[in-house]
């Protein structure tokens, strides 16, 4: 199958891309790696009349330390993040989670900005980013602003981005050798997660347990109170509203959320202990 017809715009700078968004409004879509957008367009579930290809804008792919944070360019591809030595040293959860996305070919194309902007509740990197904390840097006609990750993903394919804004960077705290865990549950290795849990420094985020990636707040609060991993993980499904599909109904997803949270927390504790 093939996408419906569209006009392709190839801006050379972020400013030009924003200008194109302003000009074309709702008819336009940003094209980054295309690995969420093009499959939707091929199935004709999306039919934008203008695509703004940001893949040719120089300088959007980087991972660097800036103070207490690591800054990651929106155009950084999953495989670049996976192999990046700075990321490996400063936020090791991210390269690992990047390696769990799809398959090698997908990782060669997909970008972190794309997966963040797409807001699929089943996506891996947003789950890890939400557990890390930090912010999404967006650029619009009025310049840049920073949106905390906890306020960014609003629902299924829905974010806090304005229609004329672009994701340009992700900023996450440096976690260094702190323990972390990421548990992705799939039927086949290259699948999207049925449920996933990310744990780092007492924060826990879940994939596919609601319209968007969510924090397991009851678990986090219990941990803060000093509850055991076992007790805290048992609360992981609280307040979630998972959907049912052929892989899992809501009850089973909630079970997985508890199980994967426990395992992710155990890994985080183990890794932390080992590193310490």
């Amino acid at each position: 199958m093939i996408p419906g017809p569209f006009e392709l715009v190839r801006p050379g700078t972020v400013e030009d891309a924003v200008a194109a968004l302003v000009e074309h409004g709702d008819d336009a879509k940003i094209l980054a790696g295309g690995h969420s957008l093009l499959p939707l367009m091929k199935l004709r579930l999306a039919m934008p009349s203008v695509l703004i290809d940001i893949g040719r804008i120089p300088g959007l792919s980087y991972v660097r330390v800036e103070g207490d944070e690591v800054a990651i360019g929106a155009g950084t591809r999953h495989h670049e993040l996976e192999k990046d030595p700075v990321a490996q040293a400063e936020v090791p959860i991210l390269p690992y989670v990047a390696s769990q996305v799809g398959d090698p070919q997908v990782r060669h194309r997909g970008t972190i900005g794309g997966t963040v902007a797409h807001s699929d509740p089943a996506s891996d990197l947003p789950t890890a980013l939400l557990a890390l904390g930090g912010s999404v840097v967006a650029q619009g006609p009025d310049g840049r602003r920073s949106i905390p990750v906890t306020e960014f993903w609003l629902g299924f394919f829905e974010t806090a981005l304005e229609p004329d804004e672009l994701v340009v960077e992700l900023r996450v705290p440096r976690t260094g050798s702190a323990g972390w865990g990421y548990e992705k549950f799939t039927r086949r290795a290259n699948d999207w997660p049925i449920v996933a849990a990310a744990a780092v420094e007492g924060r826990v985020a879940l994939a596919n347990m609601a319209g968007a990636v969510v924090r397991a707040t009851a678990t986090e609060e219990a941990l803060a109170r000093g509850a055991s991993i076992e007790e805290a993980a048992a609360l992981a499904a609280e307040g979630t509203s998972p959907s049912a599909d052929m892989h899992a109904d809501a009850e089973y997803r909630q079970h997985l959320a508890r199980l994967l949270t426990r395992r992710a927390l155990e890994k985080a504790a183990g890794a932390g202990a080992a590193a310490a």
């Binding site: 199958m1 094209l31 090698p104 070919q105 997908v106 194309r109």
Partner: peptide
Amino acid sequence: CDTTSCGACTVVVDGLTVKSCTVLAAQ
């Protein structure tokens, strides 16, 4: 396939394997 699932279309672009059914010629 239509969903970037099968890999039958894999080619190498600038040194990296990609699924050519999910890359525009323009890209």
